[in-house]
Simulated assay, not measured.
Amino acid sequence: MSWKLRIILILLVFFADLFSFHQIRRGKMSLNHSLLWILISIVLLLIAVFPSIAFWLAGMMGIGTPVNLVFLFFAFFSIILFIYLTNVISKGDRINRRLVQKVALMERELREMRKTESKGDAAENE
Rank of each mutant, 00 (worst) to 15 (best):
S2E: 10
S2K: 09
K4V: 13
R6K: 10
I7A: 11
I8E: 08
L9W: 04
I10R: 00
L11H: 01
L12Y: 10
L12S: 04
L12D: 02
V13L: 05
F14D: 09
D17T: 00
D17C: 04
F19V: 07
S20T: 09
I24W: 04
R25L: 03
M29P: 00
S30G: 06
S30W: 07
H33A: 03
S34R: 02
S34E: 12
L35Y: 13
L36W: 14
W37H: 04
I38L: 13
L39I: 15
L39W: 14
I40T: 04
I40H: 09
I40V: 09
S41V: 01
S41L: 02
I42H: 07
I42V: 12
L45F: 06
P51Y: 01
S52Q: 07
S52M: 05
I53W: 02
I53D: 01
A54H: 06
A54P: 04
F55V: 01
F55W: 08
F55G: 00
L57G: 02
A58P: 07
G59R: 08
M60N: 07
M60K: 13
G62W: 08
P66K: 05
V67G: 03
V67F: 08
L69R: 06
L69C: 02
L69Y: 06
V70H: 07
F71A: 01
L72C: 08
F74W: 07
A75R: 14
F77E: 03
F77I: 00
I79A: 06
I80N: 05
I80A: 11
I80V: 12
Y84C: 00
T86I: 02
T86Q: 09
N87R: 15
S90E: 12
G92A: 07
G92H: 12
I95A: 05
N96E: 13
R97M: 07
R98H: 11
R98E: 15
V100I: 15
V100W: 13
Q101I: 13
Q101S: 14
K102W: 06
K102D: 11
V103K: 11
A104M: 07
M106L: 11
E109P: 01
R111M: 11
R111K: 14
R111A: 07
R111S: 11
E112S: 09
M113T: 13
R114H: 08
K115V: 08
K115L: 08
E117I: 12
D121L: 15
E124N: 12
E126F: 01
